[in-house]
Design a protein around this nucleic acid. Structure first.
Lengths: 231, 231
DNA sequence: GACATATTCAATCGTACGCTTGAATAGTCA
DNA sequence: TGACTATTCAAGCGTACGATTGAATATGTC
């Protein structure tokens, strides 16, 4: 039996925790988490988000409304489309923290990943603090294999953009004598895995970096945008 | 209309995001968030948690079960009682991240806090990076005004423990010539506010530090435990 | 070994959520 | 202005969740 007495103190606390739980509620649906993950890469329209997350457009719109109500995303009219984007870099950092917690606490995540990447040579986990160091110091060729628009919205400094489905045709753009480190959206994304496998069959020394741009910027490191790219 | 085709890729993604959403679900109830916050201070029994969060014991037990199912907390029999504790420091870091996001994105949090602390001289926000520096360098007397068991479970190095309700009687333990920095459970806790107000009326130069032990350790700084205390 | 106590389980009820469908809204473009 | 399109709204349905209550399960004590 609880006390039930409503002191002002209790009222204040209830209010605060209700606010914190708003964030929890917003991230309590798998589809909404997926939408957040997608928006960590770059802003997108409702239609694109629906397609990428296998949702109906109406349903995606509904989920986005919830995310917007929790102030995690913002909507902006861009011509005929509505473009959604993360409301703040802090949201991206929070997502990385959420993902990290799930990875460290929920064995299911690692199991599922291992099962899915089973037998793929490009997927093995590299103990990546060295790798990150090499990438930061520019000792390797960094390759961004995501779609160009994601690259444009933000990429690791000095990274070269070759989307994975163009890679085979554009191999000559990569110097043969340097080690290549490929990255994509993050640890659950296959694109870098495929890229690494292709590169290796073509004689490159290639490795996959699990971290994506979100992880990079969550560590407080600088992210480059299209404006800086001369091409 | 969505594609609906269930590729293995989609299946994998669904599995991953479902796992991430488990964390979201666990933190989607205000009461569960409150329980997490309490457990960030120290391990506690069901009864104590129920009392502190104004829940019935059965209800608290149920919420704890949910948190345990999401692997955020662990239960351990201690004699007649069951003691719950955070499963990992990572959970504490996640909580701090969640709280930080809510503070930066949800204006309601700041509004509620301002309204509740309205007019209390001990509550004003100190631009606290200087303050944290002073605390780290040992330039001030650090005062932990939480209940002793929370101090024992973990406190800021060199902090002195005087629970706020004993403070008036134990003022002589504090050197009069040094600045005092008081902290408690975190930004939404009144204890340090009260302590600072009391100290000031008694002629001390006192300030409140909003950060608690959770914030401290989330920054990767060392936390001291009872074992190290000679008293 | 029987009692007392802390905790969990099980059943119930009202509410809120997610998905679907079809219509409405608000912009663009000719 | 009027057709077109991306997006949102509204209603309906099944399911899952939170709080409450009372019984059941452990564990320690006498």
């Amino acid at each position: 039996m609880s006390i039930g007495m409503t002191t002002p103190h209790r009222h204040f606390k209830d209010g605060i925790y209700e606010q914190l739980a708003r964030i929890g509620k917003a991230t309590s649906s798998p589809k909404r988490v997926e939408l957040l993950d997608l928006l960590c890469q770059c802003p997108r329209t409702v239609e694109v988000l629906a397609e990428l997350s296998s949702l109906s457009v109406a349903n995606a719109s509904q989920h986005l409304k919830v995310l917007r109500a929790a102030r995690l995303v913002e909507a902006q009219k861009k011509g005929l489309y509505v473009e959604y984007r993360l409301a703040d870099d802090e949201v991206c950092r929070f997502f990385v923290s959420l993902r990290g917690l799930a990875e460290s606490r929920l064995a299911e995540v690692e199991q599922a990943t291992r099962a899915y990447f089973e037998g793929r040579s490009g997927a093995e986990a590299v103990r990546s603090d060295d790798l990150l160091g090499k990438v930061r110091r520019g000792e390797v060729t960094v390759l961004d294999v995501r779609p160009v628009e994601e690259y444009r919205a933000g990429h690791i400094p000095r990274a070269i953009s070759i989307p994975v489905d163009e890679l085979k045709a554009r191999l000559k753009e990569l110097p043969k004598d340097r080690e290549v480190v490929a990255y994509c959206r993050g640890p659950y994304c296959v694109m870098a895995v495929e890229a690494v496998e292709l590169l290796r069959t073509k004689g490159f020394k290639a490795q996959r970096m699990e971290q994506g741009v979100a992880d990079w910027s969550a560590r407080g490191w600088r992210v480059a945008t299209a404006r800086e790219v001369a091409r």
